[in-house]
Design a protein around this nucleic acid. Structure first.
Lengths: 246, 246
DNA sequence: CGGCTGCTTGAACTTGTTCAACAGCGGTGG
DNA sequence: CCACCGCTGTTGAACAAGTTCAAGCAGCCG
């Protein structure tokens, strides 16, 4: 279970056995469980640890004064909840559990030590931040310029591939324990419109999504309607050229 | 001129004189000039250098197949154009010059060396990435949940404060050499609507923006209409507590 | 059973888009 | 020197996408 992060990082760069073992140890030391629908981190909070998702779903979000809410990321196993908690003084957004969640707490000092002493881990963490940033940019594009149908289809493609990268899919099926209201807060739409948009995707036989189970019936067609191009997820183990370095 | 980055990084952490000198040297070695309205980096391009903005304005953007365009960042002096060029295989977005631009090219090896051998620089670079990511998240919130008026006002607040951090403002005035169409591509609106929204802000005596010169007439009121909270820019030299570390 | 959460539907409404046209300005070439 | 072009900003009017409000339904759990 503690290995989703390792699995994901290996998409980027080759870790040695000792690095994998180190990672495993660190992620096993301080494991916490949280209930669904609870905040793991509140906006404005100050703390010197970062959380690594081991199991369950969470999200990053911000709330405006009048209650409007926008997610900026879905967090799945293997995701580092927030690099930024570690160095920036205060949390500039909240992190909420969607399902019951298991996380590992990692101290700032530990991250610093990794970055200082282990070249590959430093690269892998750096990488992970860059990919996270790339995903964030793609969300920006979606929210700014894609239609509702494209946005919803796009997000489904993205989530499926990200889950696949940490081995949480079987064939074209995965668990997607997110309500339509949460999906709306991620896509910048109203929950009503998300509902109608999903019906459209279902009617076109592109996906089925019932009882928290998502099945992609025609990935090619779904990706096409979304204008989805997986490049921004950088899943192709592009870090090979770095292996020779050290 | 080469010092905008230094100035910005010092918002985060205290750099030693030798670190500042090192930075200055590196940013003076390979300086390039580019014309306005030209791409500095094309989507899909492969290269092992990163660019640091020394002068002028540029933007990160992506284009969809049918021509819809979305900016994901404005790049101003002191900005690192792309950390991700360095490690990820290919550029997942383009970088376009808005005005004539002067950039310093920095090799991947140089960044690696910084990160390995200079603790403060490593922290500062890390920091810069985190702040960049934070800004990206705030854009996500804007595009997803803010109205046109809020979005435009918000972006004006942000740009002004970012320019202030690198000393490119005088009193409440700064240069903003961006067309309304570009502003539209950043805010996810049509250029027509951006125009009308700006008129609304002008009519309310919040800003004036003519001939590429922005003047903020009432920052408090502007921030209020935008629901702007500067925390996400992390400009408050929060890194003080790290000074004692090394 | 009753209350809660999540999904679905209809209909009126709003925000922002699209299309089309025009004005002002600076540069260019005849 | 003037005509012309392209770019930027501006305006009006029709239109479309998505929101809001309101209600009902199904499943789940105490």
């Amino acid at each position: 279970m503690a290995d989703a992060l390792t699995r994901k990082l290996q998409n980027y760069t080759a870790l040695s056995a000792s690095e994998r073992a180190l990672l495993h140890t660190v992620l096993s030391e301080r494991v916490r469980r949280h209930d669904a629908r609870r905040d793991l981190v509140c906006e404005g909070e100050i703390r010197g640890v970062t959380l690594v998702m081991l199991a369950g779903w969470a999200c990053r979000y911000k709330t405006l004064e009048d209650g409007r809410r926008q997610l900026s990321a879905f967090l799945i196993p293997g995701d580092i909840c927030d690099h930024s908690m570690v160095f920036l003084g205060h949390a500039d957004h909240a992190i909420g559990a969607i399902t019951p969640v298991t996380v590992a707490e990692v101290q700032r000092e530990t991250i610093e030590r990794f970055a200082r002493d282990y070249a590959r881990l430093r690269q892998a963490l750096w990488w992970d931040m860059l990919v996270t940033a790339s995903i964030q940019r793609e969300w920006t594009v979606s929210l700014g310029r894609r239609t509702a149908l494209e946005r919803v289809a796009h997000l489904l493609c993205e989530l499926f591939l990200r889950l696949q990268a940490v081995d949480l899919t079987r064939s074209w099926t995965c668990e997607l324990p997110v309500t339509q209201a949460e999906f709306a807060d991620a896509t910048g739409l109203s929950h009503v419109h998300v509902n109608r948009t999903l019906q459209e995707l279902r009617a076109a036989s592109l996906v089925s999504w019932q009882d928290r189970i998502l099945t992609i019936l025609d990935f090619t067609a779904l990706a096409e309607t979304a204008q989805f191009n997986a490049g921004y997820l950088h899943l192709g183990y592009e870090g090979q050229h770095l292996d020779a370095n050290e």
